[in-house]
Design a protein around this nucleic acid. Structure first.
Lengths: 355, 355
DNA sequence: TTGAAAGCGATACCAA
DNA sequence: TTGGTATCGCTTTCAA
């Protein structure tokens, strides 16, 4: 602290407070505060003077002090289940834009797929008295139903929007409609004449979106009276499972359409299929879920053939989520909602008529 | 505020403070504070009692109050020049890991390529009294030298690390060595027998990394006594410029190697080249800069042929940046440094011997 | 329309 | 090893 004071006498500007302004303008700190917070009850002339001296001496309100007395932080918390996933960027970007005009700042934390870390992050956010929380729950990825630590959060009078699926709590939820997406995809393939399908999952037996996609595929096929075959893999290299797929493709009754749990998995099939002399979509149709983008460029568009996929509009999800949070902020007593955003089919080159 | 109080009597837990603990344990708030901050000078027995009652009644220190009195925020600021760029994720992820154990939280903001917004973000961070700031300057992208607003930041006694290039200020800088990277790339191609090169930039005449890459290419070629030809484009669609490239490739003395300003630009050439019947690397070698990753998967690896590129280790950059910040935190008087991290060449299928 | 003063919830100094 | 208390910068009654 004392070093701080000596530093202030060095090259650094000193920090000014409302007391300085009050002294200069010969008014009370109360009046300065009224002006700074935009409250009425200060004569226009004084207001002007206060505003201009504040500007002149470079006054900036101390957020910590303001937070302490108002018990509001003017901050939102954003907790991602795994920030390495680029989809969060799109979410965050949109969310930030949506609430920026309301003057909120963002505290961000990464749970890295760990329930313990998620809990610690929530505690941090509460310690900071965030005015609202956007939470991408780890439970969506681990699928072990381990959500009891969220009970404590539910007891707090703070608006929370869950970006994912969670029931039994008083939170608003927003998520993509995976089942409907799977249904659309099957419809598309069915219309092209496909009757034998192969679903390829990858190390995602517990992952909620992947599970819902698979369920959606099964339901849709069952409704059409068709059998569904799934390949669930856990390895991360493409070696083993792509080999297995090739084997099935060269069997007596091979699948004519392959549905991958996500675009990335589909991408990894391009090379093994080409090396085996199997053409897409002439020999087999290929499609995925969710669009992999890098700076506005769809990777699935670049590949040859370009990949048919069920795209989810992350921006739309984020916008709806932001609205949910803002709504709850103004009316904390409203009933919690769960909202599912439909995806849309991007038909590209990788799907064609069944041979 | 009154609503808050009524709410506290409803389903929500009430908020506890050190006063509550002090009363229950029959000690002063000073002692409680000492225990909570881990300071010595409290008898073991009392310490135990305080700790357990704190645990029991669910006490959590109020960050705002602590910040106000200590004049430290225990927060770092992270200002990205454009968060839509996925590279920031890798940076943030690593930075967060590196400083997490020190107990810092993260305030995040997006400048969206706007100097005005960058300045507003800096003000926000200062208002929050962040203990350190990681700034990706917009000037690196706009290249208009508009950095005067950073002077005010330079006058503050707060550690800042610039992730990018900036001179004339007292900040530490960390960035990738683009010129050396370009040199390596040329060396690689030269060794393969290439003598006629085409550099393809895209809407990045002002973008600092792109400029440095082009400069590096020019320098390297000049040193070898070779001419350099560049194509600078501003359109975002690949239509016009890819046509121009095809024209050059079918001219009398066509380039045998194409160097793209980044991987994404290279990706967009795959289709037009294939459609024109030009094979890579048989007819022309192709390479880029920077690796485009989606969740650990290198896109350049998936494409056929896979793309040769100069990769930059964002994790290494982030780690060095974190160390710089931590170093300056402990010794504010050290001289500012500028550190360049070398890239490394990923030789893949898209480059081969000159024909 | 104004100002005096009482907090907000911690920390840290000083005396005991 | 303790406790009393001033303090951080601001908001917000309450009286004037």
């Amino acid at each position: 602290m004392s070093r701080m004071l000596t530093e202030r006498t060095s090259k650094y500007e000193s920090v000014v407070t409302i007391v300085d302004i009050a002294r200069i303008c010969n008014v009370s700190t109360a009046s300065v505060s009224r002006v700074m917070t935009g409250l009425p009850g200060v004569k226009a002339e004084k207001r002007e003077q206060i505003l201009s001296t504040a500007e002149n001496i470079g006054y900036r309100p101390n957020r910590a002090a303001r937070r302490l007395v108002t018990n509001k932080s003017f901050m939102f918390g954003f907790i991602a289940s795994d920030l390495r996933n680029t989809a969060y960027l799109e979410y965050f970007h949109t969310l930030e834009r949506e609430v920026r005009r309301e003057g909120y700042e963002f505290l961000i934390a990464d749970s890295e797929q760990s329930v313990e870390r998620e809990n610690a992050n929530i505690e941090k956010m509460l310690d900071n008295r965030v005015d609202g929380l956007m939470l991408f729950p780890v439970s969506d990825w681990l699928g072990d139903g381990n959500t009891s630590h969220l009970r404590r959060l539910d007891l707090k009078p703070i608006p929370v929007v869950i970006f994912g699926y969670l029931k039994g709590y008083g939170f608003d939820c927003i998520l993509a409609d995976e089942v409907a997406a799977a249904t659309h995809l099957i419809d598309h393939l069915f219309d092209l004449g496909h009757r034998r399908y192969l679903y390829v999952g990858l190390g995602d037996l517990l992952n909620r979106p992947a599970r819902e996609r698979w369920n959606g595929v099964k339901q849709a096929l069952t409704k059409k009276g068709l059998p569904a075959s799934a390949l669930q893999m856990t390895s991360s290299g493409s070696e083993g499972w792509s080999q297995e797929i090739l084997t099935r493709l060269t069997s007596k009754m091979p699948p004519t359409a392959i549905i991958c749990v996500n675009d990335l998995v589909a991408f990894q099939l391009y090379r093994p299929l080409r090396d085996a002399g199997i053409s897409v979509p002439q020999d087999v149709s290929l499609c995925g879920f969710g669009t992999s983008r890098i700076e506005h460029t769809n990777i699935g568009d670049l590949l040859m053939p370009s990949l048919t996929t069920m795209d989810f509009d992350n921006e739309a999800v984020a916008k709806r989520g932001a609205i949910m949070l803002l709504d709850r902020l103004t009316d904390p007593s409203r009933l919690p909602r769960m909202s599912r955003v439909p995806g849309h089919l991007l038909v590209r080159e990788s799907t064609g008529r069944a041979r």
